[in-house]
């Protein structure tokens, strides 16, 4: 590296940038949790048996998904307080949860949908035949089969959201990027603190992406029908009980 990279500045900035790590990680978890919950809201509206509602919701999701999260963040932060009637002023942290959470909930809603659609038709028919209520059907039959296979995909989105969270520094959430920028402005040394931010992201997201890949392989074998069939054969359990038996294991 050139002469302009000074290690003393690097170590001077390190503790200050690290102060923001808790906020960044906390915001990521908050956004992810919000997106996981809100993803179900989309699913709920899209399953209403009314073509008009479904197409409106589909377009709203498409709209949120294909417009920049930065603009949505600005909307929540600057514009929401002056909206008549429903306008509220929110903390920057809450704004970030709302904006980033809703943005990614549209992706997570799609993941849920793919999971639900992959549940075998026989399961739906069986739950009707066994006179399950709608609530019980979803809670006991459909969701337990639909959601676990999507866990690796959800994990990928967790990492993607982690990398999206520094956007919140623009509206003043004091995560690592905001800390680095303010250190830079104070000491007129941006290079070292920003390098630290890059290294922190790399150190956290690379190992987690490897973990997710391992999880994916594990999940694929766990939910692969052929593998399940072989397991069942080894234990000489009739095929009918296949999925239930595997779940207990």
């Amino acid at each position: 590296m050139g002469d302009n990279f000074r290690w003393e500045t690097f170590f001077d900035a390190l503790p200050i940038v690290l102060q923001g790590l808790g906020v960044t990680v906390g915001l990521t978890f908050a956004c992810f949790g919000f997106a996981l919950l809100f993803g179900f809201v989309w699913i709920f509206f899209r399953r209403i048996p009314n073509k008009l509602i479904v197409s409106i919701v589909t377009w709203v999701m498409e709209f949120i998904r294909s417009t920049p999260p930065l603009v949505q963040l600005f909307f929540v932060y600057y514009a929401l307080p002056v909206v008549p009637v429903i306008g509220v002023t929110l903390e920057p942290f809450t704004c970030a949860i709302l904006a980033i959470g809703i943005h990614y909930s549209t992706y997570i809603g799609e993941i849920y949908r793919s999971g639900i659609e992959s549940v075998d038709k026989g399961q739906w028919e069986a739950s009707i035949a066994l006179n399950f209520s709608t609530m019980d059907k979803w809670r006991r039959i459909i969701l337990p089969q639909a959601i676990p296979p999507t866990i690796p995909m959800l994990g990928n989105y967790f990492i993607i959201m982690f990398k999206e969270v520094p956007l919140a520094s623009i509206i003043g959430v004091t995560g690592i990027l905001a800390m680095a920028n303010s250190y830079g402005a104070l000491n007129f040394a941006y290079l070292e603190p920003l390098t630290i931010v890059g290294i922190i992201f790399l150190l956290l997201s690379y190992p987690s992406s490897i973990l997710i890949k391992k999880l994916e392989v594990k999940m694929n074998t766990r939910f692969d029908k052929n593998v399940l069939l072989e397991k069942a054969k080894k234990k000489s359990i009739p095929d009918m009980n296949l999925k239930e038996s595997d779940r207990i294991v």
Partner: peptide, 22 residues
């Protein structure tokens, strides 16, 4: 891995501030 592992906004600021200095 470096570019996928860090976030775009960090890369943007890094290029903006760091390349001229470095």
């Amino acid at each position: 891995e470096v570019f996928r592992g860090t976030s775009l906004i960090v890369q943007l600021f890094w290029l903006y501030y760091a390349i001229p200095m470095l």
